[in-house]
Amino acid sequence: METSQLIGLLGEGLVQTLYMTLVATFVSYVIGLPIGVSLIVTSSNGIKPVGWYNKIMGFIVNVVRSVPFLILMIALMPYIRKIIGTGIGTSATTAALIVAAAPFVARMVEQSLLEVDAGVIEAAQSMGASNMQIIRKVMLLEARPSLLNGAAVATITILGYSAMAGSIGGGGLGDIAIRYGLYRFQPAIMWITVIVLVILVQIMQEIGLKIAAKLDNRIN
């Protein structure tokens, strides 16, 4: 394969991977963040304990999280095909990624919010803050650095999932690595895609840490 061809191939794979990862991460947060908040708020020592909701939602999150991504994706394929018309390719993969990642994001958010000092929440309650005000102005703001670090971890995990999706025709860099490296015995191409993925992960981790540190007012 000529170099220009290779670059074109990798470029296309990279764009697909980034598209899948970023869209899936964004939508996972749109779904997972409120779920994570609701898990904290409704827990037995939360600001509005609702036992049955907490148990059911916690159970659903755990069930989805315990299914390996590859199996989840295969299991979801028929449904995804029904909804968006195709069971393979980047769009289908993105849909599957969201289903798998949203519960993961919910747990990450829950962990971050657990770190918020209960005393600060009590102080806000003593000032007459409503539960909504406490969520928006205290919990999410105080946990911001941890939430951003969590977002970096979530993005990288979703990137890993998207590469895995390549093995069943999901598109992106993982797809290239499997097709050329495994099926066509071109290990060089496989390794190049691996290196590109490693660099991608490094960049995402660094950006995540930088933003989190910049927006953290506890240390400076």
Binding site: D117, E122, A123, S126, M127, G128
Partner: peptide, 26 residues
Amino acid sequence: KQSELNQKRHKISMIFQQFNLLMQRD
């Protein structure tokens, strides 16, 4: 009601042993 109580709480402030300030605000 909770909303009326929240109004009353504006008139009863509280300070704590551990200060309980918002760490992300100056």
